[in-house]
Design a protein around this nucleic acid. Sequence first.
DNA 1: ATATTGACTCCCA
DNA 2: ATGGGAGCCAATA
Length: 125
Amino acid sequence: VYRVVRMIPEARVTSYGHVAKLIGMPRHARHVGQALKFVSPVAGVPWQRVVQSTGTIARREPGGAERQRRALEAEGVPVRVGRSGEFVVDFSACGWFPDPDEIPHEQEEGERREGEGGAEVAGGG
DNA sequence: ATATTGACTCCCA
DNA sequence: ATGGGAGCCAATA
């Protein structure tokens, strides 16, 4: 999970479900969140770049969602506020949903890709 | 072992 | 676009 989340480019956002797919566990969307909440307090992983499939920041303890919103805005991701005070990001603008095949599995340390640019954008559909 | 919960997602009305 | 229900899998009680 952390490996995939770390490859999310700056100012880009994806969903728990997609991360789950990228790691080969399309049904573990919830566990992706569980894993992220585990690293959020220690940082080191751009957990902020993962939101719900609807682009909405999941609700959690008061102040938590706002924390994620702040983190996103800090890197230039515009966050919209819903009528319910929900925070939403625009996948069409900063969505990051590469094909699972694009993601190298068990990438050994040392080797690395260059100029991996994802121009595709969700939503379009 | 059963029941409940959770940083989720898809389906249907 | 909105709201209710089911499916999902691991952790917890």
